[in-house]
């Protein structure tokens, strides 16, 4: 039996989550571990993880997709309407269609028209929010009582597991997943390997959109209904979950699914623990910012320490230039 080498890079997300559990466990006198609170944590994490399962496809290519907040609201609104008309069976196809269309549009913008993904998705975020405002204006759309079961633990947990398995399979065990991460490393190299990079990008954005839309279903069912502010800032939460879990900001081979799955409860716990400690909203926000920055910085340092060799090409040039000027 070969001994498996433990890499600090691998266990870092677990260390952060564990550390936070201990700190808040002590600070709240065990309050975080109360059953009701744990269920709370799960419910909030679930939507974040589901959306992250899609966002990670774009992130692994080194791209950014921040449409999630608005897309979630649009998908939620449409699927709630479908739910009213056709019951639970109508919700998922509707959401998937909405998500796929949004992703397709974004993917084509990015891959074919070379609009940087951040700007493309930012525009999309704004436009979709405007669309929701128009669609719902001051109305609140309710989901029928008959589909409340979706919010139940006994439906949500298996659904989450199934989604993780499907996405995990696509992401890790198919050529498609390999190419995604390879694009994050060096897009040119993949082009020169004869792979249709544009197609891969478009599909990645579509998966990202679909998962955001599915997260929308779980969110609106949990809320019982939706108005036009649903999902505000949600994209940031998903991004924080990824990066606090140690997914490299530039994408590439270090993009791993488990980092998201650990990162999501971490960021939710941070918020939850702060509230239980009696901290105000402002303090919570501030701490979140600091922790995120620290996590991203740590990821970078650890990454370069274990992978880097120093003295890179660009390094040599910039050094030379510094001395010249």
């Amino acid at each position: 039996m070969r001994k498996k080498k433990i890499n600090i890079n691998t266990i870092m997300p677990f260390l952060i989550l564990g550390g936070m559990l201990i700190i808040f466990g002590i600070a709240t006198h065990g309050q975080v571990f109360v059953k009701q609170n744990l269920l709370n944590l799960f419910n909030q994490s679930a939507a974040t993880i589901i959306a992250g399962l899609g966002m990670i496809f774009v992130a692994s290519m080194g791209g950014t997709d921040i449409t999630h907040g608005s897309l979630l609201a649009v998908a939620a609104a449409f699927s709630a309407m479908a739910g009213q008309a056709f019951g639970a069976g109508g919700m998922f196809p509707t959401a998937i269609l909405v998500g796929a269309l949004s992703g397709l549009f974004l993917g084509v913008l990015n891959a074919k028209f070379k609009v940087p993904s951040f700007m493309a998705s930012l525009s999309m975020l704004i436009a979709l929010r405007a669309f929701v405002n128009w669609l719902l204006s001051a109305r609140v759309i309710m989901v029928p009582q008959s589909i409340k079961f979706i919010d139940g633990f006994s439906f949500k947990l298996p659904a989450l597991i199934v989604l993780i398995i499907i996405i995990g399979y696509i992401f890790k065990y198919t050529p498609f997943g390999t190419y995604l991460r390879a694009i994050g490393e060096n897009e040119n190299a993949i082009k020169y390997a004869g792979i249709n990079v544009d197609k891969i990008k478009i599909v990645a954005f579509m998966i990202s959109g679909i998962m955001a839309a599915i997260a929308g279903i779980f969110t609106i069912v949990r809320m019982g209904g939706s108005n036009n502010t649903l999902g505000n800032g949600f994209e940031m939460k998903v991004m924080m979950a990824m990066f606090i879990g140690g997914i490299p900001v530039q994408g590439g081979m270090g993009t791993k699914l488990y980092k998201l799955i650990v990162g999501a409860p971490t960021i939710i716990l941070l918020e939850n623990g702060m509230v239980l400690c009696g901290a105000g909203g402002g303090v919570t926000q501030g701490v979140r910012g600091v922790v995120l920055l620290a996590a991203v910085y740590l990821t970078m340092v650890i990454y370069s320490k274990f992978n880097g060799t120093g003295g890179s090409k660009s390094g040599a040039i910039s050094k030379l230039l510094k001395e010249c000027t």
């Binding site: 390879a182 490393e185 060096n186 040119n188 190299a189 082009k191 020169y192 590439g252 081979m253 992978n307």
Partner: peptide, 8 residues
């Protein structure tokens, strides 16, 4: 530039 993924 066109072949390898240097950081991988």
């Amino acid at each position: 530039l066109d072949g390898l993924m240097l950081d991988a």
